[in-house]
Design a protein around this nucleic acid. Structure first.
Lengths: 208, 208
DNA sequence: GCTCTATCTTGACATTGTCAACTAGTCAGT
DNA sequence: ACTGACTAGTTGACAATGTCAAGATAGAGC
């Protein structure tokens, strides 16, 4: 009978309900914020009954967790792409590119960022989500590792350095996402701040 | 008739309902997370009817905004106290103390931090809240200003430097609050990371 | 006394998350 | 082709929530 769903997608009744639901989630977060996502609204937009989502995601947190997983996959890809786009550069430049990709992801894909980090979802309690998060962050950890081995920061604690860069990227991302800069600070663009913040890191010149 | 409310507090029926409600909010956020705060639950804990909160805070967001205002007041005080606790130190040391207070606030007063930054509340649309936020951040901005004037960073853009330190503090605070450090990173304590992250800043030695 | 106003209560309504029971397609094995 | 099992989705119900309108209550000012 193939309901209203138009075309090709394979599957049983709907076609590909999980994807349709997650697409709806993205819409809703964009329109009304991560706090106002509801299972029923997502179901409505996907054209199914109000309790269909539960069969795929269990409950509301499950749906948000699935959405967040996609976010971490995208984030990981973007960071890797950023890193690889630096050819012939230093380890510090590659690390800055990873950080830049992190912030750009938050700004360009705010719905994902919001659900991943600011929706109150308990990441560690969702096994697969937790693994996705670790996998994405491995890109950043790897870039820090390269900085240590190639950049001569042999005395630095890799954990400290990782948290330093991660904090920098995550903090700037958070500030950029809710554009509530104090007066005077909103004159510069996000890109200015990205360049400025990661440019500061260039003051590290192997003396650490 | 003075209902169940026991003692001294002044006022009409309840005594001091706004304070009682905000105290209830703190409890609820601590127990069930910022996403699970409800007007009715707060009313229940304060011993009033389910729609009493609306008369003080308008709606749910209004209640969270009032709670967040308190958070910004505390945060501002804590940062100022941190700054003033450094006697005879450099501007950079005072700035590091401000940042440390920021992170400690997030860790020690997580309910406030969560509602202020991660509850989906739209700060700019709440005038008084916005002012409170600006006032608190003025402490950080001031400390950056001192760094520039006293520390010899005359070529640095104060906006860039502010966002740099703010990102660092806010990012570490966020990471610390949801303790989802990747494997290996959770061996160090929050205090280790605070010291490490703000210690990196000491690599800035007036050459910027 | 009386009125006025701030404070709080009651009752209602639509929306939500979740659960149990049910229906409808689809496939494997015979 | 028939049966049974399984997957996908529906229907109906329930308690909880945010919000609104209307009423009740208590203190202030006169």
């Amino acid at each position: 009978m193939r309901t209203s769903r138009d075309s090709d997608s394979a599957g049983y009744h709907h076609g590909d309900l999980p994807n349709a639901l997650l697409a709806a989630v993205a819409e809703i977060v964009e329109e009304k914020g991560a706090a106002n996502v509801s299972l029923r609204e997502a179901a409505r937009r996907a054209g199914v009954s109000h309790s269909a989502p539960a069969h795929h995601f269990g409950d509301k947190e499950g749906m948000l967790a699935a959405f967040a997983e996609r976010g971490f996959e995208i984030l990981g890809r973007e960071m890797a792409t950023g890193r690889d786009s630096v050819v012939g550069g230093s380890a510090l430049e590659r690390l800055a590119a990873v950080g830049t990709a992190y912030v750009r992801f938050a700004v360009d894909c705010t719905p994902y960022f919001d659900v991943m980090f600011r929706s109150g979802i308990d990441t560690p309690s969702h096994e697969h989500l937790h693994a996705c998060a670790d996998k994405a962050l491995a890109v950043l950890i790897g870039a820090v590792g390269e900085l240590i081995s190639e950049g001569g920061y042999t005395e630095a604690d890799p954990r400290q350095l990782t948290v330093y860069f991660w904090s920098l990227a995550h903090g700037l991302a958070s500030l950029a996402v809710d554009r509530s800069m104090p007066p005077g600070l909103d004159e510069l663009t996000i890109d200015d701040y990205i360049a400025g913040v990661f440019g500061m890191s260039e003051l590290f010149n192997g003396t650490g």
